[in-house]
Amino acid sequence: MDALKSAGRALIRSPSLAKQSWGGGGRHRKLPENWTDTRETLLEGMLFSLKYLGMTLVEQPKGEELSAAAIKRIVATAKASGKKLQKVTLKVSPRGIILTDNLTNQLIENVSIYRISYCTADKMHDKVFAYIAQSQHNQSLECHAFLCTKRKMAQAVTLTVAQAFKVAFEFWQVSKEEKEKRDKASQEGGDVLGARQDCTPPLKSLVATGNLLDLEETAKAPLSTVSANTTNMDEVPRPQALSGSSVVWELDDGLDEAFSRLAQSRTNPQVLDTGLTAQDMHYAQCLSPVDWDKPDSSGTEQDDLFSF
């Protein structure tokens, strides 16, 4: 819950932080000083300027060897085509990944977070970031790969997607708890209302004896509580940590079903599988986004697919 609360507080303090972009060759504004600060901008989305290598189908939802083989196929196909790589912007948030063309600003792909089953910074092609997700059109699994400016960037994108998945799962947990509370309150309110109706004398007997209905007592009954809980029953509950912020979080049926399955089948359902080692994760978390744009010590960066 700490990640969720800190993310909400950060967004309320400075929503404009989320509009910064990394990996864009110096076009961005001043960047936060450390990885923790940038992680807090996830709610509205972190932007990464990358190059799209392509996509291939895979048979399993996750796995280092599986993704490595898929990336190898994608890279080989991209090299064989001889075409310049498409420059894209990857927007990562707890909602998922939005992929747009840098030149036309046209939407290429919009992947809900619950469809993503794996992401990684490839070991062999260490400047490549990739994720595996279920197609929104059918049940097939797709591996999408992107060329980053350097290994640090690939690791940073991988960690960002993993963190977005974690925050999304926490949102789901909060929403589920809130819905259970509202359902319980609604049920209790309905029981109270039913009890009051059972003990209320029939209207005919009131008229016969000349008694008047006590409207004041009726007004004191917990009807307002019942209506408050039943009027918006169809509205999706939102985490309290975000009250007053500009973010509107809505959970669709697909996300609810997917996270429910994860909660039942996995020990740590909030953790998205990645190909990063503990050492890689520690190294990337210690980086400032400013470091992502620094040239690798191995030599001059080449803006070309064939540089790796």
Rank of each mutant, 00 (worst) to 15 (best):
I12F: 11
Q302V: 10
G275S: 02
A80Y: 13
T225R: 10
S265E: 03
K79L: 09
D191T: 10
L213H: 15
F146W: 08
T267P: 02
S67N: 09
D280A: 02
P239A: 08
N34W: 13
P289F: 05
G23M: 12
G254Y: 06
Q60Y: 12
S243D: 06
T56N: 04
S93V: 06
N34F: 01
E235I: 04
D280P: 09
P61G: 07
P237K: 06
W22M: 12
S227I: 11
N232I: 08
Y52H: 05
A130W: 09
R151V: 01
A258H: 05
A263D: 02
S186K: 05
P237L: 15
V167N: 11
A70M: 10
G25H: 09
V271W: 03
D2S: 08
W292Q: 09
Q86H: 14
V88P: 11
C286S: 00
V226M: 10
N34L: 13
V167M: 03
A78E: 06
M124S: 13
D101E: 10
D304G: 08
G254W: 06
I97R: 11
L147E: 01
G190E: 09
L215N: 15
L90N: 09
L57G: 04
P239N: 00
G45V: 12
C119F: 00
D253V: 11
I108H: 01
M281R: 02
Q270Y: 05
Q136V: 13
K72F: 08
L43N: 15
V192H: 09
S67R: 01
A156H: 00
I74K: 15
I116S: 02
Q20H: 05
H137T: 07
A208T: 09
K220M: 04
P61N: 11
K91G: 07
K166N: 13
Q173C: 11
V207Q: 00
T267D: 07
F146D: 11
I116M: 15
L141A: 13
D291S: 00
T200G: 08
A18L: 03
R29H: 04
L159W: 05
C119Q: 12
E64A: 13
V248W: 10
V247I: 00
D291P: 08
G244Q: 04
F171P: 00
P94C: 15
A156S: 04
V271A: 05
P237S: 08
T200I: 12
T38D: 10
T274I: 15
V236P: 00
I108P: 01
V290R: 06
K184I: 10
G45W: 13
N102A: 11
G63M: 12
P32Q: 02
A80T: 14
S307Q: 08
S288I: 02
W22K: 09
T158M: 15
T149D: 04
S93T: 12
T230R: 08
S14L: 00
A121F: 05
F129V: 14
L215M: 04
E59F: 13
I132D: 07
R39V: 11
S14G: 10
L262Y: 08
Q173F: 11
A3Q: 09
R196Y: 01
S6C: 07
V247R: 00
V271D: 07
V247F: 01
D273N: 09
K79E: 06
P202T: 08
R13P: 14
A154W: 03
T149E: 03
V157M: 00
F169H: 01
A10S: 14
R261V: 08
F129W: 11
F171W: 00
L147C: 12
A3F: 08
T56Y: 14
N211Q: 08
T231Y: 00
R196C: 10
K152F: 11
E178D: 00
V271N: 02
P202H: 09
S297A: 07
A121S: 07
N232E: 07
A7W: 13
Q139Y: 11
G26E: 11
S135T: 05
Q279L: 02
D183L: 04
A208W: 01
L159D: 03
Q302S: 09
P239I: 04
M153T: 11
N102V: 15
A69Y: 14
L272A: 01
E40R: 09
L50P: 15
M124P: 00
T100Y: 11
T56I: 04
T77I: 14
R115Y: 11
Q136L: 11
A154M: 08
S260Q: 14
N211E: 04
T77M: 14
S245M: 15
D293M: 06
S297Y: 00
E177T: 01
E250R: 04
Y114Q: 06
L193W: 03
N268T: 00
A10M: 14
L66P: 15
W292T: 00
P32V: 15
G210I: 03
K176W: 13
W22Q: 08
K152Q: 04
Q285D: 00
A156R: 15
Y131Q: 06
W249C: 12
R27W: 08
D303T: 07
M281C: 07
E178R: 15
R95V: 11
V290W: 07
A3Y: 07
W35L: 04
P239R: 00
K51T: 08
K184F: 05
A133E: 12
P61I: 02
L262I: 08
S135M: 13
A133Y: 14
R29Q: 04
A70C: 11
A7Q: 07
E188T: 05
S246H: 02
K79F: 11
A154S: 14
A121H: 10
L90W: 02
C148R: 00
N268V: 03
D191A: 02
L255W: 10
Q136A: 05
Y118V: 03
V290N: 00
V111R: 14
V271Q: 02
S67I: 02
A7C: 06
E257C: 07
H282F: 00
D126A: 11
C119L: 09
L272E: 01
L251D: 09
L103P: 15
A76M: 07
P61W: 11
P15F: 01
N110F: 02
L57W: 00
T230F: 02
T100C: 14
L50A: 04
L276Y: 02
A221E: 04
D126F: 09
V192K: 14
R29Y: 15
T200L: 05
I97G: 10
S81A: 08
L276E: 05
D253W: 05
W292I: 00
A10K: 12
D304L: 10
T89L: 09
N268Y: 00
E177N: 12
L4K: 04
N232D: 14
L11I: 03
Q187E: 06
L107Q: 12
R115E: 12
P222E: 14
S205T: 15
T89P: 10
L272Y: 01
K30D: 05
L43R: 15
D214Y: 11
S246E: 07
A78Q: 05
C286Q: 07
P222C: 11
L50D: 15
G54D: 05
D296I: 01
L57P: 13
G96E: 11
K83F: 03
Q163L: 03
V192E: 02
T149N: 03
G254S: 09
I97E: 01
G82C: 06
D198C: 02
P201E: 00
R29W: 09
L43V: 09
N105Y: 04
L31C: 10
C286V: 07
Q20P: 12
L212I: 04
N229E: 03
G275L: 01
P202D: 03
N34K: 14
N102Y: 13
K91T: 15
E109S: 02
L276I: 01
Y52E: 10
S93C: 11
Q139V: 15
I113A: 00
N138H: 15
R151G: 08
V58P: 14
Q270G: 08
A219H: 07
R261D: 08
R13Q: 10
P32H: 15
L223F: 08
D126H: 04
N229S: 03
M124Y: 09
S260D: 06
D296C: 03
H28W: 14
I132Y: 10
R27M: 13
G63W: 08
V236Q: 00
N105A: 08
V88Y: 14
G82F: 08
R115Q: 09
W292F: 02
P289M: 06
A208I: 04
H137C: 14
L141I: 09
A68M: 06
T267I: 03
R115M: 09
E250C: 03
F259D: 02
K83Q: 09
E235N: 06
S6A: 14
K179M: 10
L262W: 03
G82Y: 02
L223W: 02
L99P: 14
K51E: 03
N105S: 13
P15T: 00
I71Y: 07
D256G: 07
V248Y: 01
F48V: 09
V128N: 13
P61E: 06
V75F: 10
I132G: 07
C148W: 00
S243T: 07
E257T: 04
N232A: 07
K51F: 03
K176N: 07
K62G: 03
L242N: 00
I12A: 13
